[in-house]
Amino acid sequence: MNPELIFAADADSFGSGRRSLALQCRAGQLVRLRAGIYIDVEVWRQLRAWEKERVRIQAASQQVPGQRVLVQQSAAVIWGLPVIDSPPEVLLLASPSSHGRRRGGLHWTERKLLEPLDVVEGMSLTSRAQTALDMAVYLAFEHSVPAMDSVLRPHLVHGRPATNKDELEKLARNLPDMAKQTRARRVIDFADPRSESPGESYSRAVLHRHGFPVPELQYEFLTSMGRFRTDFYWKDQRVVGEFDGAVKYGANGSVLPPSWDTLMQEKRREDAIRATGVAFVRWSWRDIRMPAQHPESLVHRLIQAGLSPTRRQR
């Protein structure tokens, strides 16, 4: 359910007036999303970071007159596709007269429509498949892989089926030029629906860029404590990799420490997998984003565990 937005235009209509909203905002009772659009501060505090981004885009979509078709990362947020580092601007499909225009946190950008537009929760946007393809064309490789992995799986919330690679490649052939088609195909070829989280997808893409060998995904170990799946396994080197995505958030978006029981269960699981004779490397978002030369970076830690790049970095 979308949180209620408070519009200054409605305040004028019902007599409370814009000044009242501005005073409530200064008093810390409301949060200003855009000029003339507010949300209750307690409602805002209950939202997680990605939910706040969704509300920010929703506010812009409702305020813009005329054509307001969401594209690329902005469309991805509404679809629930993973977005790494959301842009500060809301991205909208440009008409011929508004190509490249920027105003008030909005950016109209030209895109060739590959499929009919969709409507999600009253917002017009590019199709789920086109959104992922546009990200593949215009974003860095590792930033586009999580979304492409995601469209290869069914969308349970909106009841949309998975898109297969043949369908994506067929759409990609309609991109405006060969360079864009090549960029899209590279991401499509690499995409894998077995990556179960944005962190796993992003990790896989970063490892690929650094030239590491291809891991087996969701490999199952039979241990003394039972069967456990792992995110990454390099069988020849006997190295297990795990992206630590089990982060819990409080109502205000703050990171909460895991419970003692959770820590102990995970330690027992990790010890059981290690007892099979493999090296075990666990990493977080912080580790992935460190420079490769840093002693705590993902790249450095994998090399220490016995895994070496097999080709030159791309």
Rank of each mutant, 00 (worst) to 15 (best):
V83C: 07
G28A: 00
T109K: 15
L222K: 15
R186E: 09
S61I: 01
P82H: 01
S16Y: 09
G28Y: 01
A22K: 13
K112Y: 07
L81R: 06
V31Q: 09
R160D: 03
P96C: 00
P96R: 06
G253Q: 06
Q29P: 00
R286A: 14
V83A: 04
P161C: 11
A272M: 12
E121K: 11
R269E: 03
F228K: 10
G100T: 01
T223R: 07
A179M: 08
R204G: 04
L175N: 05
T230I: 07
H294L: 11
D189K: 14
T262Q: 15
V43I: 13
D177Q: 08
D85H: 14
S13M: 11
R19A: 10
Q63G: 02
V206W: 00
D287S: 07
R209L: 14
R111T: 07
P116Y: 06
R269T: 08
P82G: 02
Q237T: 06
G277H: 07
R229H: 12
V120Q: 03
G277S: 05
P193G: 08
A205D: 02
I188Q: 00
E4L: 13
V145L: 15
L5E: 00
R48P: 01
R19D: 09
Q313R: 15
V120R: 14
R153W: 00
F228Q: 08
R19G: 10
R173T: 13
G104D: 11
L217M: 12
N252H: 15
K170Y: 10
V119Q: 11
D10E: 13
L168H: 01
I188F: 01
N2R: 12
S144R: 01
F190S: 06
A132D: 00
A9R: 15
P213H: 08
T109I: 15
V187R: 02
V69S: 01
G250Y: 08
L93H: 11
W234V: 06
L91R: 10
A75F: 06
P258E: 03
L81N: 01
H143I: 00
K170A: 14
S254Q: 15
I37G: 02
S224P: 05
L307N: 05
F7I: 09
G241D: 02
S254F: 12
V41D: 04
K180N: 10
V247A: 13
P193M: 09
P82S: 03
A292C: 09
S308G: 07
E167I: 10
A22Y: 11
G36R: 06
V278H: 10
P65T: 08
Q265D: 07
T223G: 04
G15I: 04
R227F: 07
P146H: 00
F221L: 12
S197K: 11
E4C: 08
T230H: 01
R18L: 04
D236E: 12
P146A: 01
L125W: 04
R227I: 10
D10F: 09
D12P: 01
P161L: 13
R282E: 00
A305M: 08
Y219S: 05
D149E: 04
K267F: 11
L217S: 05
I303Y: 01
W260M: 12
